[in-house]
Write a protein that binds this DNA or RNA. Structure first.
Lengths: 233, 233
DNA sequence: AATCTGGTTTGGTATGACTAAAATTGACTG
DNA sequence: CAGTCAATTTTAGTCATACCAAACCAGATT
């Protein structure tokens, strides 16, 4: 269990601490590699590997040929950094289902919450999103976008910045399956009606009905995805 | 927006694809660095940076001096890789609160679900965890562990492997705040009673009561954490 | 003041070398 | 013949050096 650390890991930790403590603050650029070499008495190889690690872990933003800049942390970059692993987990259908189930979990919760404590202008924004969705039924691309938008409003209503970030992550991760789904005005119509049902339940302040409508909508979506998945087997 | 890629990124992508497609399967070791140098016609520097990236992103397991091994993906490693960013987000109290709120969200959902569809042996396991918790009231360390255990059973009841992983991540991330909390038998007693209330609501198949009990329990915990946070300001 | 321009700095890559640890081989032993 | 151990070979970690092209900067030009 010894696992002695590499010099690059050591240096990585030092920078991590400096960032954590604010000695290096967001937006600030790291010193040039050659300067770091002198400061810490290691080779440039080690410096580069440490910086690369900082970049991979999402602590700095390292565009090629530019000095790495300390990144302001946010949940989007956090979720970005796990993209690769998540994508592997989505290689098999089980992983997709598990992820989709967490989405159901969140949206059910959000729908219930909205039913209980949505403010007037929350409902207004949801209504706007719903209307735009309804007007886009015959335009496949626009319908998809307004569909996403409708859900996003729900994620935003919680007032927790983590949730919209999670929503964006879901979209990105599940997109590859989604785009293979056949689309049609008839399908869009059904989806729109599902959205409408969710909205109405929230408007009527009926959490149980909001939950049921959300579950139905997402179960429906899952059926579609699942059909794709089983075909590709 | 051009952002031409570095050779190391290029190579990283190639390996990612190979892993993704199964050409390199879990548990398999990568070829020696020098061999990769020949295969792809790049310098060892590039090879090392690419491998390091694979390691940082959680796709391979690279212990020092051992050949990197393709890692079987799981949600724990996914959540591990974002640890650094999340820790930065937890630097300020707002981040802690946002994260804690998602925990409330999940546990409320789980408590409701359990009330509706917990199987007999689910309830049995929860009961066992509750009893163990009750017996540990006067043992601070054991109480903490059985407390965590009680919650974990809830996370496991969903049957979704993502949830226990999320639970472990929560514990790891929030631990630093938690351990600063004063503990006492009296506090433990209160927490135990909260657990009992949650359990009883689930037993009585009353989702609303289960939700209320869970919210109360976690709001209580938040008060404790918050006290710590405001002190350290 | 804004722009252009040429020298300087710096990141990306390649190469070669050295060390210590890991993997492998093969002789040796029971 | 199986198992052990020591010698040999590979290999990862690190360092030093060199070169190029892009970014940066400061002084000259308009």
């Amino acid at each position: 269990m010894k696992q002695e650390r590499r010099a690059a890991d050591e240096l990585f930790s030092k920078f991590e601490k400096m960032i954590h403590s604010g000695e290096l603050s967001s937006g600030q650029a790291l010193p040039p590699e050659r300067e770091i070499v002198e400061t810490f008495g290691v080779s440039r190889t080690v410096v580069r590997e440490a910086i690369l690690a900082l970049s991979n872990k999402g602590l700095v933003d390292a565009k090629p040929r530019y000095r790495p800049v300390v990144k302001k942390p946010d949940f989007d970059t956090a979720l970005d950094t796990i993209g690769n692993v998540v994508n592997r987990l989505l290689d098999d259908g089980e992983g997709v289902k598990n992820l989709f189930d967490t989405r159901i979990m969140i949206e059910v919760y959000l729908a219930r919450q909205a039913s209980v404590e949505a403010k007037r202008d929350d409902i207004q924004r949801l209504k706007t999103a719903l209307d735009e969705n309804g007007e886009a039924i015959d335009n496949m691309e626009l319908f998809f976008n307004t569909d996403v938008k409708f859900h996003r409003v729900l994620y935003e209503m919680g007032g927790n910045p983590i949730l919209p970030a999670v929503h964006r992550a879901y979209i990105g991760w599940l997109q590859p399956n989604w785009i293979k789904m056949p689309t049609s005005s008839a399908r869009n119509q059904l989806n729109f009606e599902s959205h409408e049902a969710i909205f109405n339940a929230i408007l009527m302040r009926d959490p149980d009905k909001a939950e049921a409508a959300t579950r139905k909508h997402l179960a429906d979506a899952w059926d579609q995805i699942n059909k794709i998945l089983s075909e590709s087997t």
